[in-house]
Structures are given as structure tokens and as C-alpha cells.
Design a protein around this nucleic acid. Structure first.
Length: 352
DNA sequence: AATCCGGGGCC
DNA sequence: GGCCCAGGATT
């Protein structure tokens, strides 16, 4: 493959999208955009990026914010460890690097939440260093052009693609080239319905020639999905309700939710109803129906039990419980997982 | 080296 | 229902 870099750079200059983080070399903005865009589509991350640079114009703003504020801004984006690592790295740079973003690949790679891809992206976009980005797009583009059938979710496949990527990247404008190959994968060499009929590589792409385009890249493993059953207790009187902060090493760490009873299996709902009525000494009017939430590695079946009290919600709590009493109108101020906000949206519809 | 981690969109 | 997404941390 001769002049791959020149071909794809030419294509990029004619076809690239105008994205806000492409109009800057500021490592703070580059870093922030890359963290938001990890495993996240541009369309989905755009509003979050604009919100973050508006609310946290500099890395010092981010460092000085409290974690809950950052998590609230991240609410709905998923992979909340990204937000916690974002905060940690902002503090690290602000207080241990005099506010200066590291400008060497190896130093950038040491920061929390930054792996090989993001370190290469920041290195090349901000500091013009020659490190190839290897993301989902690059895996797809290269396995197609060279018709590579080694599974990309193995160490052998990853090593192979990195070797090719290191040979292809030009020393001249590595950042622009990295943007170009990812953009080519994102909008032209797409997973389904790639635009092969109007492709600059149509005569050279090995997978196109061999008819294997839609079978590249190959992945060998299948994700195992765990089923979980969450019974949430929406305990409230006319003004207050109860929230609980997740602290264990599990999904949604440091996010708030209703008091939770997790079951290992799909238990008899009538039995749970009887237990709850006895515990709270209240009639439960309706048995909830399951809401299924499909995540990558978990299918979560949520049940929301509405327990209406006439007296104070405090009386349902033990002193040892780590719960907080929250005014109903202020629930939304706490960082919540989508499972909870979806439920709140639904009951508000009914109330209206 | 293998496993886990959210949520949304598309087909 | 399966796959993918501008991957990284943990075990």
C-alpha cells in the first residue's frame, strides 16, 4: 500500500466533519473530548462536551469541583468511572504538574483514565508526536484494507494492527493523519453498509477484492450477559423520599438511587409484596411490572415498589442505614443512573 | 490474558 | 436479538 497516508489525508480534507475539539490544540479540550468519546458516538457525546467546557472552562475548574457536581454533569452518559478518573487526573495535573498537561506520551499514559488510544490521541493532536491511534475505526479500516482475519480481541491481533499502524503513520503531520484514519472509519468505512462503491481504495482494498468486507474485523469472543433483579423502594410521604448512595465496587459507584433490594433470581412478586407490607406496616396498592434495562454485560430487571407513608419517612430508617432524606423536587439534583431517571420520567407522565 | 464496565442506536 | 461505538481498569 503506497502513499496510504497521503491518500487518506487528501480524503480527510475534503470530507471531514467540523467538530469543536478539532479547532484547538489545547490539551485540556483534547483530553476532555477524548474521555467523553471513549466508547461513545460523536452525536451522543457532543452536548456533554459543550456542557463541560461551558461549566469547566479550564482544568483548574474541573480540579476544584466536587465529585458529585462532575457526576451530575456526566449523568446519562454511562461508564461513570470515566468521570471519576477525569476528576482525579484534573487534580493530578493541577496540583502535581503546576497545571501543565504532560507533553510526553509515556507521561500522558500514566494518568488515570488514559490508555494507549487516548495517550496517542492527545500526543498527536496537541503535541504533534508520532504515535498512531488504534481505536475501533482503525481496527476496522486496517483489517479491511489488508484483509486481516486474525481476531482483534486477542493479543496477537492487537499487536499485528499496532505494527501496521506504526508503519503507516507519517512523521510529517501525525495528528492530522490520526484524525483522518478515524474519520474515514467513522463516516466512510462504516461497520455496516460501507461506501465501497465510492471509495478511494476500491482498487487496493484486499477485503473488497476478496469479498470479505462485512466479515472484517473478526472478533472471537462473545460477551457473557449477567441477569440481575433490582427491587427499588420508592418510600415517600407528600414531601420527602429516600435516596441511597452506591459505594461498593459495582456499577454506578457514587451515584444515588432508591433503597435497593437485589435478588439473585426472579422471585415471586406476591411474596415480596407481603414482606414489604409487613416491614412498613402499609398496604401496597399495586405490584410493579419489570422494566428491563439492557446493558453491555448485564440485563437489569427493575421493580419500583411505591410505599406511600402518612408520617415521616425517617421512621422507616435504622440509625445504621447510610441513607438520606431528600425533598421530592430535589431528587434530580443528585447524580442518578438512567434506570432511576427513566422511572421518574414515567411517574411524572402519570401525574400530569 | 481475560473479564468487566453503561447506554444508545442501528439493523 | 446481536452488534457497534473516537477504550481503560482490574483481576
Amino acid at each position: 500500500m503506497d502513499n496510504f497516508d497521503l491518500s487518506i489525508l487528501k480524503w480527510y480534507r475534503q470530507n471531514k466533519r467540523n467538530l469543536p475539539w478539532r479547532n484547538t490544540n489545547n490539551p485540556y479540550f483534547i483530553w476532555l473530548s477524548e474521555i467523553i468519546l471513549q466508547q461513545t458516538r460523536v452525536d451522543q457525546g457532543m452536548d456533554y462536551y459543550l456542557k463541560f467546557i461551558n461549566n469547566f472552562p479550564t482544568i483548574q475548574h474541573l480540579a476544584n469541583a466536587d465529585e458529585q457536581t462532575i457526576l451530575s454533569n456526566w449523568q446519562g452518559l454511562g461508564y461513570y468511572s470515566r468521570a471519576r478518573n477525569l476528576h482525579a487526573t484534573a487534580k493530578e495535573i493541577t496540583f502535581n504538574h503546576n497545571g501543565n498537561f504532560p507533553n510526553k506520551y509515556e507521561e500522558i499514559l500514566k494518568l488515570k483514565g488514559i490508555g494507549p488510544y487516548t495517550a496517542a490521541a492527545i500526543s498527536s493532536f496537541s503535541f504533534n508526536l508520532v504515535h498512531p491511534v488504534v481505536d475501533g475505526n482503525v481496527f476496522r479500516v486496517l483489517t479491511r484494507i489488508f484483509d486481516i482475519d486474525t481476531p482483534i480481541d486477542t493479543s496477537e491481533g492487537i499487536k499485528l494492527i499496532y505494527n501496521i499502524a506504526n508503519k503507516l503513520i507519517p512523521t510529517n503531520e501525525p495528528g492530522e493523519y490520526n484524525q483522518a484514519i478515524m474519520e474515514f472509519g467513522a463516516i466512510h468505512c462504516t461497520p455496516s453498509q460501507p461506501n465501497c462503491n465510492n471509495c478511494i481504495f476500491s482498487n487496493q482494498c484486499k477485503a473488497k477484492i476478496n469479498g470479505t468486507i462485512l466479515h472484517r474485523p473478526i472478533k472471537s469472543k462473545k460477551t457473557v450477559v449477567k441477569k440481575r433483579y433490582f427491587h427499588y423502594l420508592d418510600i415517600s410521604n407528600k414531601v420527602d423520599t429516600i435516596l441511597h448512595k452506591r459505594t461498593d465496587e459495582d456499577i454506578w459507584k457514587h451515584l444515588f438511587e432508591f433503597p435497593l433490594i437485589e435478588k439473585n433470581q426472579n422471585d415471586d412478586l406476591q411474596l415480596i409484596k407481603n414482606q414489604l407490607e409487613k416491614k412498613f406496616n402499609q398496604q401496597i396498592l399495586s405490584i410493579p411490572t419489570a422494566q428491563k434495562h439492557v446493558l453491555s454485560h448485564q440485563h437489569i430487571f427493575t421493580y419500583f415498589w411505591q410505599i406511600k407513608l402518612n408520617n415521616s419517612v425517617l421512621e422507616t430508617l435504622n440509625e445504621t442505614d447510610s441513607f438520606i432524606v431528600v425533598h421530592k423536587d430535589e431528587i434530580i439534583k443528585y447524580p442518578l443512573p438512567r434506570v432511576i431517571t427513566k422511572y421518574l420520567e414515567n411517574i411524572n407522565k402519570i401525574d400530569n
